[in-house]
Amino acid sequence: MSMWAVVLVVGLLTFAIRYSFIGLFGRIAVPESLERALRYIAPAVLAALVLPAVIAPGGTFDPWNIFVPAAIGGGLAAWTTRSIGAAILVGMPILWVLQAAV
């Protein structure tokens, strides 16, 4: 049930974000300070999602676990090819090999 509530609330708020300035007839520009903050949201929130999931899987800090090399490999692949699919195609096999080896 709470998943449904989350989906509906986020759906409404996301629509409000998308409609905001379109509804304001484009007459009002984004304030400069907000525009500056928005530039750092993507890097900050993505790193805050990735890093704990990789170096502390299950909530306990463990920088030597097998997710770390798999994530580094996937990240390098995405960075060099500019593609999300490459991260999966490189990162998952690294994980599988390490799972089989360890």
Binding site: V10, L13, G26, I41, V45
Partner: peptide
């Protein structure tokens, strides 16, 4: 979960501002 999702989607404010001109 809600706050994280809204933060991620907040970048679309900038797109909305530009599209509003059209």
């Amino acid at each position: 979960a809600i706050v994280t999702a809204v933060i991620i989607n907040s970048r679309m404010l900038m797109y909305s501002a530009d599209i509003g001109r059209y």
